[in-house]
Simulated scan of single mutants.
Amino acid sequence: MSSKTVTFYFSVLSPWVYFGGPRFHEIVRDAQATVLYRPIDLLRVFRETGGTPLAAMSPARQAFRARERQRWSDWLGMPVNAKPAHHPVDEALAAQLLMAAEDTHGSAVVWPLAQRMLAGVWVHDLDISQASTLAQMARGEGLDGDALLTQADTPAMRTRFDNGTTEAMAAGVFGVPSFVIDGDLHFGQDRLDFVERALRSH
């Protein structure tokens, strides 16, 4: 196993995770690094660290963020809806499904399924809080969605999700995507150059 490890704190509601995830995974592949996946409750992080959810931002901030989303969409060639129909929603079950998939099939399945969820929110107007939607997404990745949902939808998995969010904030995380390398926090998909540099220095 590579000695280079990145703890990746992310939310399946964030357009910035949607945009940054593919490049991040190219970087870690080229660096032969190991990724520790930590899906977190973004709205809870905002509440507890002084962040502002999108809907509560001033009109000027909302307008600028919308423009930035479109700029990144154009730059990366990744479509995005200006106003997704189901955002924000409770992402707990989706995150727990990712953890169940990793438990059953290993870490390689996590990101393709997470990116499918993100595209579901930001491109296809799907509601990732719905079990039927999540089961279909898992099947789209060749997984047994119903079995994984049974595994995911338990109090123990909810506790694990909550604990992962607490761990993230203890590491200094206040938004996503966040990347921790050797205890050093990098925040934002526009900081991936620094993530790449940190991995190259190992």
Rank of each mutant, 00 (worst) to 15 (best):
L98G: 08
T159L: 15
T154K: 05
P155T: 07
T104V: 14
F194D: 12
A101W: 15
A101E: 13
T5F: 12
D103N: 13
Y18R: 14
I181Q: 04
T7F: 08
F161Y: 15
A119I: 07
E102S: 11
Q96M: 15
L76S: 02
A31M: 08
V123M: 09
Y37C: 08
R67H: 14
S3M: 13
Q136Y: 08
M99I: 11
M57F: 08
V173R: 10
G145T: 09
D162V: 09
D190V: 09
M157C: 10
A114Y: 03
T5S: 13
G145V: 07
L98R: 06
G188P: 12
S201G: 10
V110W: 04
L42Y: 04
F194K: 13
F64C: 02
Y37E: 13
A168L: 09
T49F: 03
D162S: 05
V17E: 10
L185H: 00
S2Q: 03
Y9R: 04
A56P: 03
A92C: 11
S107P: 07
G77A: 02
F8V: 08
H105E: 12
V121F: 03
F161G: 02
L134G: 12
V12Y: 15
M1H: 14
E141T: 11
I40M: 06
E48V: 04
F64M: 09
A95K: 06
V176R: 08
K4V: 02
E26F: 05
D153F: 00
A171K: 12
D182Y: 07
S201V: 10
M78A: 14
E167T: 07
H124I: 02
L126F: 00
F179S: 06
T165N: 10
R67K: 15
M117W: 05
L185G: 02
P59F: 07
A82E: 01
F174N: 00
E48T: 09
Y9F: 12
P59K: 08
A135F: 05
F10S: 08
H124A: 07
R61F: 10
I128F: 13
G20H: 00
V6A: 07
H202A: 07
M99C: 14
K83I: 10
A119D: 09
L199P: 06
H124C: 04
D74T: 11
R197E: 12
F10L: 11
Q96W: 13
D193R: 02
D193K: 01
L98H: 05
R197D: 12
L126V: 02
S132F: 00
L148W: 02
G164R: 09
V121Y: 03
F64K: 05
F46P: 03
I128W: 13
G77L: 01
T52K: 10
L149R: 11
H87W: 11
V89H: 01
K83T: 13
T52Y: 10
H86Q: 01
T7S: 13
Q32H: 14
L126T: 06
Q130H: 14
S73H: 04
W16A: 01
A56S: 09
M117E: 06
L54H: 05
A82Y: 00
D193C: 00
T154V: 05
T165C: 04
H25P: 08
V6C: 07
Q151W: 01
H87I: 07
L126N: 01
A55V: 08
D182Q: 14
E167W: 02
D30H: 13
R61H: 13
V17N: 14
